[in-house]
Design a protein around this nucleic acid. Structure first.
Lengths: 111, 111
DNA sequence: TTTCCATATTCCAATATTGGAATATATTGA
DNA sequence: TCAATATATTCCAATATTGGAATATGGAAA
């Protein structure tokens, strides 16, 4: 899965990983602290963190023998950018016509 | 993968499926029209559409023997809502302190 | 009804992902 | 150096996902 967008979505497609991100919402946390908060084994947490790291969704710094993980805003921002184009397209269509007219709309792009 | 959020992210984790969504940006399209635009086989397109349908990312209506697919705004909107909580948390933190202070910040939630 | 066209489904082999258990690495303290 | 702590990695069996080929379904036209 080489392209960055696929990595991000695949990383987010697993509930335990979203739980990890959610636990990082209020700031940096060590791996052990994540193990305590979530009910996942330490090796699993480390594996999930690796996936999140490779998707650039989290960043990690060492402090003594702990690794402190925090959210990486950049990756979430590019996700938002991806979403924005769809929202814009929807809004344009909603602006152009109401629901009733949309039902009557001809399909586009047929050969 | 039973929860809706995981379904949405998993559906988006595949580039061909994002290509399909992108092709639907300017309106409804039949399956055959998608096969022409993207370079994927018809059975593959149908399979991808099924995944997108089950994630509620697209809707389908029949017109004669064709199936016309279009984007489903609701699902994208809930994705945006999920994102928003992270953006809010980031913005709050950025408002509270600049980068230099963030480096000095104590980790939270240690036992 | 028979045939054609558009789409969906099934089967299969290859590949990827998951969780658990065990183990490895690295840092700290005695 | 040795032991303890924190985290990461590896190995394995089970399960899931992918693409291709073949086939099935269902509507439309003759």
């Amino acid at each position: 899965m080489p392209d960055p967008a696929s990595n991000v979505f695949a990383a987010l497609a697993d509930a335990p990983r979203r739980d990890i991100l959610s636990a990082l919402l209020d700031g940096e946390r060590s791996v052990g602290s994540l193990v305590d908060v979530l009910s996942i084994s330490q090796p699993q947490v480390s594996k999930h963190l690796r996936v999140l790291r490779e998707a650039q969704l989290v960043r990690c710094r060492a402090q003594g023998r702990r690794r402190l993980y925090r959210l990486e805003p950049e990756s979430l921002r590019s996700l938002r950018d991806w979403l924005t184009q769809y929202e814009r397209a929807m809004i344009e269509r909603f602006d152009r016509m109401d629901d009733y007219l949309r039902v009557l709309q001809q399909p586009q792009g047929e050969k």
